[in-house]
Simulated assay, not measured.
Amino acid sequence: MILTAGTLHGEREPGEPDVDTPNEGACQALLAEYSGLLQLIDRKATVIATLVTFHITAVATIVGLLVARKGDVRLLVLVPLISSTLGLLVASQDRDARMAESYVETMLRPLVEEASGESRLWRWSEHLVHGRDALVVAITRAVPLGVLFPGLAILSLVATVPHMRSWLDWMGWSVGLLLTILLIVGWLEHGALLARRLLSLLRRTG
């Protein structure tokens, strides 16, 4: 059977028997898996956007209480706890999305090329890499998230040091510091993985 747009959608060519051939069944399974991965990536992106929005709202609420009501500066100790927890969740969701994209690129696309005999399908990742400067992409992704999560956490830790009064204050501060370190380590590891994947893609398309 020749793989065409019609056969990819389950249509049969004239005179073709009313049974699924192995190739057609494989193509249907391939498209079903591809669709599921796209839905997964979309869900992960939605979760990331929700986490970022919640983080901004939470931090703005704490700062608003301090400014409007002249609250205790020690409330800022909550910022590293919130920023680090949500930041690690963002990194986890982004890692899942990147793994799904990598699976499409390295596993599904070769199968599509083999089944269709067409090597120009599913080239969006390569088109995106060639259409945008890699350094600009890294900066525009890393800088805003770096400011929102570890940046605000570190700033809050520094700002609260002169206002610590009791061992409970220092305990909360220490927990915030520990979570911030975990966040930075996790993001550096995640960033290294993204860099390696980008370099690997550039080598394949170079």
Rank of each mutant, 00 (worst) to 15 (best):
residue 30 L to H: 13
residue 63 V to C: 04
residue 163 H to A: 14
residue 96 D to M: 12
residue 60 A to S: 12
residue 115 A to I: 09
residue 199 L to K: 14
residue 102 S to F: 08
residue 75 L to S: 15
residue 117 G to E: 02
residue 66 L to M: 14
residue 93 Q to G: 05
residue 104 V to F: 07
residue 179 L to N: 09
residue 135 L to Q: 11
residue 106 T to R: 09
residue 177 L to T: 13
residue 108 L to Q: 04
residue 73 V to P: 01
residue 85 T to G: 10
residue 92 S to V: 01
residue 169 D to Q: 05
residue 196 R to E: 03
residue 79 V to H: 08
residue 17 P to F: 10
residue 72 D to M: 09
residue 121 L to D: 01
residue 23 N to H: 12
residue 200 S to Q: 09
residue 89 L to P: 00
residue 91 A to N: 07
residue 130 H to W: 13
residue 65 L to K: 09
residue 166 S to K: 00
residue 89 L to A: 14
residue 164 M to V: 11
residue 119 S to R: 14
residue 148 L to M: 09
residue 130 H to Y: 14
residue 54 F to R: 15
residue 114 E to T: 10
residue 196 R to P: 01
residue 45 A to M: 15
residue 6 G to I: 02
residue 137 V to T: 13
residue 85 T to K: 02
residue 14 P to D: 14
residue 92 S to K: 12
residue 57 T to S: 08
residue 190 H to P: 03
residue 62 I to Q: 06
residue 124 W to D: 12
residue 26 A to L: 10
residue 143 V to W: 01
residue 116 S to P: 02
residue 115 A to Q: 07
residue 164 M to R: 04
residue 97 A to W: 05
residue 71 G to D: 09
residue 58 A to Y: 00
residue 177 L to H: 08
residue 53 T to H: 10
residue 104 V to D: 09
residue 28 Q to P: 03
residue 32 A to Q: 14
residue 149 F to M: 02
residue 204 R to E: 03
residue 94 D to W: 08
residue 13 E to I: 06
residue 114 E to I: 01
residue 142 A to L: 05
residue 55 H to D: 12
residue 72 D to F: 10
residue 63 V to D: 02
residue 18 D to P: 08
residue 9 H to W: 06
residue 90 V to S: 03
residue 167 W to R: 14
residue 106 T to K: 09
residue 48 I to A: 11
residue 193 L to R: 14
residue 204 R to A: 13
residue 68 A to M: 08
residue 188 L to F: 05
residue 155 L to N: 03
residue 111 L to N: 05
residue 166 S to Q: 00
residue 62 I to D: 00
residue 176 G to D: 01
residue 14 P to W: 04
residue 110 P to N: 00
residue 201 L to G: 01
residue 98 R to W: 13
residue 126 E to Y: 10
residue 135 L to V: 13
residue 69 R to H: 11
residue 29 A to R: 14
residue 132 R to D: 10
residue 163 H to E: 14
residue 91 A to V: 07
residue 102 S to I: 05
residue 6 G to A: 10
residue 176 G to I: 00
residue 192 A to V: 05
residue 57 T to P: 01
residue 162 P to G: 12
residue 142 A to S: 12
residue 141 R to G: 06
residue 40 L to N: 04
residue 196 R to D: 07
residue 200 S to A: 15
residue 180 T to Y: 04
residue 134 A to T: 04
residue 92 S to Q: 09
residue 1 M to S: 15
residue 1 M to T: 15
residue 158 V to S: 06
residue 98 R to Q: 09
residue 177 L to P: 08
residue 25 G to T: 09
residue 118 E to A: 01
residue 123 R to F: 04
residue 171 M to A: 13
residue 2 I to H: 14
residue 35 S to R: 12
residue 107 M to D: 11
residue 68 A to N: 05
residue 153 A to M: 03
residue 62 I to R: 07
